[in-house]
């Protein structure tokens, strides 16, 4: 049972995360200023640093939370042994679509992010990659290099995300427009 102080601390923590994510979507990670986050969260600038020592720690926490959430939801659907790789990829791309603005920032800015943030993203992507890897492995596909095949998938997704303004034709979101084509092309790599 948490006391009132712990509850307030937890609420402030979540408020910072939510506010930071909103600022990131608007301004990007590179241009993120902790002062803007504090203003958005309606807290003192110093309060933010009592929860997150640096901007890198804050951004790493957000990336970790986002990617872990995707990993958990993918893992949940693999409980159903009948689920196939196409359905798993469809779920993954739908989850990306739900937070598309955030993943566009990651795709566009990744090369310019600090090492700690990059490492946080990669180490959490590993968990998602493993879920896909296991599903492909169980499927007995005739694929020479599962790891690289998965990299083709992620590279394609990032390619479209990083150039969204050139590929999106409607208002339903780029991933929603492209996911069926990405999945059907990927499946051809597995035959």
């Amino acid at each position: 049972m948490k006391n009132n102080r712990e509850i307030a601390k937890y609420q402030t923590f979540n408020k910072i995360i939510t506010s930071a994510k909103e600022v990131i979507i608007k301004k990007g990670i590179i241009n993120l200023k902790t002062l803007d986050v504090a203003k958005k969260a309606n807290i003192a600038h110093g309060t933010l640093f009592s929860h997150f020592q640096t901007k890198d720690v804050l951004v790493s926490e957000i990336c970790q939370t986002e990617l872990k959430n995707i990993a958990v939801r993918l893992k949940e659907i693999t409980r159903n042994q009948q689920i196939n790789i196409a359905s798993l990829l469809e779920k993954y791309l739908s989850l990306v679509a739900e937070n598309e603005a955030f993943y566009i920032i990651i795709a566009k800015e990744f090369p310019f992010l600090s090492k700690p943030i990059q490492e946080s993203i990669i180490s959490n992507e590993v968990i998602i990659r493993n879920i896909l890897y296991q599903k492909i492995e169980q499927g007995n596909y005739n694929v020479a290099n599962i790891t690289m095949t998965i990299s083709f998938f992620f590279a394609t997704v990032n390619y479209y995300l990083s150039r969204k303004e050139y590929f999106e034709s409607g208002k339903g979101g780029l991933m929603n427009e492209k996911k069926n084509d990405i999945i059907s092309t990927f499946l051809k790599l597995l035959t």
Partner: peptide
């Protein structure tokens, strides 16, 4: 080894990622 297998990173970077994950 798990990271090398699923993510195609070389040993040095895979170990770095492993430490990054474990440290948290």
């Amino acid at each position: 080894h798990f990271i090398m297998r699923t993510s195609d990173l070389n040993k040095e970077n895979a170990e770095k990622m492993a430490k990054e994950t474990m440290s948290k």
